[in-house]
Design a binder for these strands. Structure first.
Length: 222
DNA sequence: GCCCAGGTGGGTA
DNA sequence: TACCCACATGGG
């Protein structure tokens, strides 16, 4: 029997402890990080964020006024730097043109309105939108990522491929709609994924879910 | 050298 | 709707 989503949360929480996400100094930094981390290792994103901070450019006005090439240079370590520079600039331009340059005015929208607005922006897909909702705007919107799909399938909680909205709605239905729970849960899934649920070469021998993970039970242990 | 990482969007059948 | 591909750097 696969664990319930509540049991899974408890196991992860006991094993890894509080995660205290998102690692950022401001809601705007969360948004920048959410865009830069698309299909990219977080350590690469940290280099890009450090570059932006060192250039005193981690704010709405700077990203808007910075020449495209200069912004690309600063965020280069995060990969896909050309399209990410376009995405960052588009976001800040919309913020200035439609919300007077104030995140608070964007965040004045209700949950559905904010999600719809974010999803309409180029380069903001469901995971990035939900990350912004949850970790920048403090809304109870569950974030699904590649680790979430992989872990649910390996645990037998889901069979076959589910799309983003199906998986998100599973968590939204089964869990209390509390920001703190969603916040910790996604962070714990990433922690588990990084350590024990890589796409290949799984290191399952020390996995805290070994007893309930089909993959762990049927795979060589390093 | 090869694989992969806290995705997204455009094209094709 | 369901795949396939481009986008790019840096670590293991």
């Amino acid at each position: 029997m696969p664990p319930s989503l509540t049991e899974l949360f408890e196991k992860l929480h006991v094993h890894f402890g509080p995660q205290q996400w998102w690692p950022a100094d401001s809601p705007f930094e969360v948004i920048v990080g959410a865009i830069l981390t698309q299909n990219t290792n977080w350590t690469n994103v940290e280099k890009a964020i450090a570059n932006l901070k060192q250039a005193d450019a981690l704010d709405i006005e700077s990203i808007t006024s910075l020449p495209q090439e200069k912004l690309e240079e600063l965020i280069r370590p995060s990969g896909f730097f050309r399209q990410k520079a376009v995405r960052l600039k588009h976001f800040t331009r919309v913020l200035i043109e439609n919300y007077d340059g104030h995140l608070d005015r964007l965040f004045a929208l209700d949950n559905d309105g904010l999600r719809t607005t974010l999803l309409a922006l180029p380069g903001i897909g469901p995971e990035t939108a939900d990350s912004i909702l949850l970790y920048a705007a403090d809304r109870p919107s569950f974030v699904v990522d590649a680790y979430t799909h992989r872990i649910l399938e390996r645990l037998g909680i889901q069979q076959g491929k589910q799309n983003y909205e199906q998986t998100r709605s599973l968590f939204m239905r089964k869990l209390p709609a509390e920001t703190d729970v969603f916040n910790e849960y996604h962070a714990l899934i990433v922690q588990l994924g990084k350590q024990f649920c890589r796409k290949s070469k799984p290191r399952c021998s020390d996995c805290p879910l070994l007893s309930c993970c089909r993959f762990g039970n049927s795979t060589t242990k390093d």
